[in-house]
């Protein structure tokens, strides 16, 4: 198990195209990958490979999140997804 935290800073949050990009990146890894909001105590740990679950988190701009992974490529998966979120998905 490997985990890192960051804050979503792109305007659309994890909706629409950014969500699709996030999910398809997560799917490219063998490990199980999860996302959890850090600003709500009751937040679920969502399967990052499920578009529906990601959307259901309602993660918008300025939401702090934790990305974690469990499996053979867990470090690479988390680092790559964190980098993707930090790149603001190419949005200004």
């Amino acid at each position: 198990m490997y985990a890192k935290q960051t804050t979503v800073l792109n305007v659309t949050g994890l909706h629409a195209r950014p969500a699709a990009e996030f999910v398809s990146t997560a799917k490219s890894f063998e490990s199980k990958v999860y996302v959890k909001r850090l600003d709500e105590d009751s937040a679920d740990t969502a399967n990052a490979k499920s578009m529906i679950k990601i959307l259901a988190q309602g993660i918008c701009i300025n939401t702090p999140i934790e990305i974690s992974a469990d499996g053979p490529d867990e470090v690479e998966a988390v680092d790559k997804l964190i980098a993707l979120v930090d790149s603001k998905f190419g949005e200004d």
């Binding site: 909706h15 629409a16 529906i52 959307l55």
Partner: peptide
């Protein structure tokens, strides 16, 4: 799942 999404306060979702 549909109910869950419909409760999110964002028209896109």
């Amino acid at each position: 799942f549909a109910d869950m999404l419909s409760k999110i306060d964002d028209p896109l979702i």
